[in-house]
Write a protein that binds this DNA or RNA. Structure first.
Lengths: 340, 340
DNA sequence: TTGAAAGCGCTAACAC
DNA sequence: GTGTTAGCGCTTTCAA
């Protein structure tokens, strides 16, 4: 390992000026009308000695860090976020960007704190699953022309890039699936949150319920309760509303709690109670019976997320985009009346 | 949002020199015998105007980026890694470090490529789940005195920080649990890999088997096969060795494949075949029957990982440490002879 | 077409 | 105790 090369060394070595090297390295050879031959020679040499420009010097000079911040609810909860993380990294690296991550725990103050921690620390762009109430922080990022892509849930008051799914329609579709399978008393278990994805899923439920004129059963849980607490909340909700014959869980973690609650009540799925959950995962696939889900198109979401971000960063596309993809109802054993 | 402050502005504003400000900001006030009063005043002002030093200027000057790279097999596979990611971020942030991540897919060339991509790009330290064959790259990081912490599996040829669990003992213990529950033909399904954690788990199995003088059944899968392929590999292994009455899966994802295989063979757990898997996750907790697992102490592992890294970075501790924590056998329904 | 030089914001050796 | 100043490696304006 020789000592670190600098652009100055390259110039010296090749007997040309540092400027020329810089121009060539930054793809401005043509623009600056530097000779093909010289360009070639420099590029070859740079390759040979494996020279990599110092990012911090570049950053100091240009004000760009080539770092994107991925701020999610919890990278270890909700597999969705880890999957997105996985899928965007490669594309980012290939464009010379690195990704730092942080988790907000869905807490407004924590998110604000994190944005404060990272802003003025040269983060070029933010991909965020916003908790409620951080509109001001986001707006101030936007004001400074720092690209922001919101994911999973939107902040309607803001004019900001957003990538998400059709929460309302896909929930309606799932409820209608239950209705058309003969279920009459369909409950909706969600968390008490005004986040758009949750509101839309609830609206989708209410629309399907209203359209078919059946009774509505809604249970809202507290996100910050312990899982155990929420499991028993669900259990007592189901046991005080014994007419419920089907239940929709509005996120994957609520689905997991719900399965526990149903197990604790010794109810059979789907004979006693049908089940549909949002978000697919192994547990739902391999549960007995397997669980019907509304699955998010994670690869497509990720592609749009990183593309939007990179385009904004490279100023190829400074418009604001809202990208809304369809979700997929995957029908499994848990949602059809058994004909054993 | 006013324009960005610089340390120079602070000095000017307060009528003192930039050096003094720098010293105070870097906690060298005492060392440089700067008056309490002035120190106080500067700190207060800095707080007031919410001044944050420009990290890239600092980085350029000091050669440190305050960035740690977390290089895992796949941040979205194996929940273990996402959990570690989650648990180390807060501690890192509190010490002024940011974490970038990348996934190797357990491929040697990809890992080498990533290290090449990031080295010379001022990453202060690396936390790595090393694929086989990257000893040279790691060694060259160590040679440059860049702190490295290996996790999950070790590279025995290297003198390097490592945080992992007692793979051998915990596997033996799990096998002995099966033996003492009366199972006679216990299989071990793993991937074909020389990684230490896999080798140790196999050794633990072989030790327990040898100790009790029973027959050994080992199936090695190919990591790079499709999941479907491996599911049917397991199924055909189990159906050509019908005497097998218990099976140990050496990782969580093999466990998931194994459950599918067992389901496809319509075998009952544990009546026809008992099951134990490495690594706990929701699926195992809530499966019917629930699955006995060897669980890794993720929070403790994470604490050690980030502590080791931060101590090395801050040069509080430049020794090499190998930290090996016990794993926990969590006995559930899948591993005891049923007495229905 | 190419080169010289200013300066991004910071640290730290050195001077006073 | 505090100030002056020389760079860290790069980009980019301006001059040649």
């Amino acid at each position: 390992m020789s000592k670190k090369l600098s652009i100055r060394d390259i110039g010296k070595e090749l007997g040309i000026s540092i400027t020329t090297v810089s121009f060539i390295l930054n793809g401005k050879a043509r623009e600056k009308r530097i000779s093909e031959a010289l360009t070639e020679k420099v590029l070859k040499f740079v390759e040979e000695v494996n020279f990599k420009p110092n990012m911090m010097a570049q950053g100091l000079r240009t004000g760009k860090s080539k770092i994107i911040c991925l701020m999610v609810e919890d990278i270890s909860n909700n597999l969705l976020f880890a999957q997105v993380a996985r899928l965007i990294e490669e594309e980012a690296h290939s464009k010379g960007y690195r990704i730092i991550y942080c988790s907000t725990d869905n807490k407004t103050e924590k998110a604000i704190e994190l944005i404060r921690l990272f802003r003025d620390r040269s983060i070029d762009g933010y991909i965020i699953t916003p908790p409620e109430g951080i509109e001001n922080e986001i707006q101030s990022l936007i004001n400074e022309e720092i690209p922001v892509v919101l994911i999973d849930r939107n902040l309607p008051k803001l004019k900001c890039n957003y990538v998400g799914i059709e929460n309302l329609n896909s929930t309606s579709q799932a409820i209608n699936h239950l209705i058309s399978n003969g279920f009459k008393n369909i409950a909706f278990v969600t968390i008490n949150s005004d986040q758009t994805q949750m509101a839309d899923r609830l609206a989708g439920y209410e629309k399907a319920i209203a359209d078919s004129g059946i009774k509505s059963f809604v249970k809202k849980l507290n996100f910050y309760y312990t899982p155990e607490n929420n499991v028993s909340e669900i259990a007592s909700f189901l046991s005080t509303n014994k007419e419920i014959d089907a239940v929709f869980f509005s996120t994957n973690y609520i689905g997991v709690w719900g399965l526990q609650a149903i197990k604790s009540l010794k109810l059979n799925i789907p004979a006693d109670i049908a089940v549909v959950s949002f978000d697919d995962q192994d547990l739902f696939k391999f549960y007995s019976p397997s669980i019907t889900v509304v699955a998010q198109p994670v690869p497509e979401l990720s592609t749009h997320i990183i593309r939007l971000m990179l385009n904004a960063l490279q100023e190829k596309d400074t418009d604001i985009h809202e990208i809304i993809l369809p979700a997929q109802l995957i029908i499994r054993e848990s949602s059809t009346k058994t004909v054993y």
